[in-house]
Design a protein around this nucleic acid. Structure first.
Length: 110
DNA sequence: CCGGTGACCCGAG
DNA sequence: GCTCGGGCCACCG
């Protein structure tokens, strides 16, 4: 069981229409303080044949993290989220108060 | 082995 | 809002 597997396991639990931040995923995976690792794990996901909803992970500011290396997958990410019913503000951000995933503490089992 | 880099985050000015 | 600085750690040359 690698650290990446833990991360993917968490990401798979994010429901449709909700999002989680990199730091939040790291925290739930027991990797507190290692948000960068989450970004790295998602970078290695194969976009086409993946069963992981990588698009539901955004940064703490409520934005999609853009990068030169992503070659447009960041733009693709936005369209996927919009297709799930998530609306963006005029400045291209997501309202975390409305869309942030809050896992039920009672149901939660690591 | 070592230094640079990065889909990150947080607190201070 | 902004920029800086520090912390984090796998990966790569």
């Amino acid at each position: 069981m690698s650290k990446y597997d833990l991360i993917y396991q968490i990401v798979r639990q994010i429901p449709i229409g909700k999002v989680a931040t990199y730091g939040q995923v790291a925290e739930l995976a027991g990797l507190g303080g290692q948000a960068r690792l989450v970004g790295y794990a998602l970078y290695r996901v194969d976009l086409r044949s993946s069963d992981i909803p990588w698009q539901r992970v955004i940064n703490a500011k409520g934005e999609i993290s853009e990068s030169l290396h992503r070659q447009g997958s960041d733009y693709f990410q936005r369209s996927l989220l919009e297709a799930e019913g998530i609306q963006f503000t005029p400045t291209g951000k997501i309202d975390l108060k409305q869309y942030l995933w809050r896992p039920d503490p009672t149901t939660w089992e690591p």
